[in-house]
Amino acid sequence: MEVTERAFERLVRDHQDRIFALGLALTGNRHDAEEVAQDTFLRAYRALVTYAPERVRDLKQKAWLHQIAVNVVRNRVRGNRPRLVELNGSEPDARTGPEEDVMRKAEIDELAARVACLPPRYREAVVLRHVQELSYAEVADALGQPVGTVKANVHRGLKLLRGDDHGDGDV
C-alpha cells in the first residue's frame, strides 16, 4: 500500500502538466480541464491499488493515462457538449501572473476553446497527435482506433482548424 502511494505520487507529479494540458485541449476551459485531470488521476489510483506490483512496474504510464483521460472526457461530454466559450473573455483567474503571462494565457485559452469546438473524433486525434505529440501508433492505441482512421481524422481536424480561423491569421 505504502509503495503504491509513493508510486502514485510520482505518477501525479510526473504527468500532471501533460494531463492538465490534455484536459484543456479537449474541453476548452481550465475549470473542466482540472476536473478531467483530477478524475483521470483518481481513476488511475483506483486501478493501481488493484494491480500486481509487476503490472505497475511495466505500465506504460503515458499511454495509459492518456487512454484514461480520453475516456473521462468522452463520458462527461456525453450530453454535456463543451461550452462554446466566449472567445475573448476566458474566466478570470486569481492565479494569473504578470501581464505578459496574462496575454499568453488568454491566447492559449482562446486556442483551447477553438480546438474544443472540433467534433470529438477529430478533436481527440488532433490533440493527442499534435498537442501531446504522441506517435500515430500511440494515438491509435489510446483511442482504440486503427492507425489509418487516426491519420485521416488528424488531417480533417487540422483542415477544420485552419478553416475555422475567422481570418485572424494563424497567430
Binding site: 501525479v12 502538466d17 494540458a21 484543456l24 483530477q38 499534435h130
Partner: peptide
Amino acid sequence: VMFDLKRLGDVKAPPGFAERV
C-alpha cells in the same frame, strides 16, 4: 496551426493540483 497546438501542450497544471489529487 501545428506550432500553436504544440504550445497548447506546454500548459502547466495549476498550483496545488498534485496536492488536491
